[in-house]
């Protein structure tokens, strides 16, 4: 996935300003509110691989809101991470349609065969496994997302292949 760039304040400020300007260009006066906060956090995470705590005061300053408000948003949304994840990310859908097609068996296989469970990263940091609730691929359940590649009708063998292709030692 995206190689995390190490934190630097200058790049962070440039990202924040760029997203804020985009919102103002599109919205005019309403763009000067905190409306660009989610786009800013997405852009920072895209660039650095996570949202560094050091970004919070910079954002608060740029958007003229409190650090607490920024922190509140960062922690409210499941997507934002406070540390980089593994080189690759496998998101496994755990919602009803995938339950009906046996996703639990796949999660059990991950745990029993590879000793990894959702919400963790392999010790070599090659692969992070996450739970997700619905990828909109319910007609081809069980579904997963490997980095940005959608996967349908996955089974135990798919998992073994993915772990191998991620080069993860489990």
């Amino acid at each position: 996935m995206n190689p995390a760039t190490s934190w630097d304040e200058t790049s962070a400020r440039a990202i924040i300003d760029a997203e804020r300007s985009k919102a103002i260009d599109f919205l005019g006066p309403d763009g000067e509110t905190a409306t660009s906060l989610l786009p800013i956090l997405h852009a920072l995470q895209e660039y650095f691989g996570y949202v560094d705590r050091a970004a919070i005061p910079l954002i608060a300053d740029a958007l003229n809101i409190s650090k607490a408000e920024v922190h509140g948003v960062v922690t409210f949304y499941h997507d934002y991470r406070d540390a980089p994840h593994g080189t690759h990310v496998l998101k496994i859908c755990r919602a009803e349609s995938c339950q009906a097609m046996g996703v639990q068996r796949i999660v059990d296989h991950l745990r029993n065969r590879h000793a990894v469970k959702p919400g963790t990263t392999t010790p070599d940091r090659r692969l992070t496994i996450e739970d997700v609730y619905c990828l909109g691929n319910c007609a081809l359940s069980p579904a997963a997302l490997f980095d940005d590649e959608p996967m349908g009708r996955i089974d135990e063998a798919t998992i073994d292949d993915l772990i191998a292709s991620a080069g993860a030692r489990t």
């Binding site: 919602a95 009803e96 909109g136």
Partner: peptide, 9 residues
């Protein structure tokens, strides 16, 4: 479209 089982959107 967060509802599981839906993908029309």
């Amino acid at each position: 479209e967060g509802d599981s089982g839906t993908f029309a959107d």
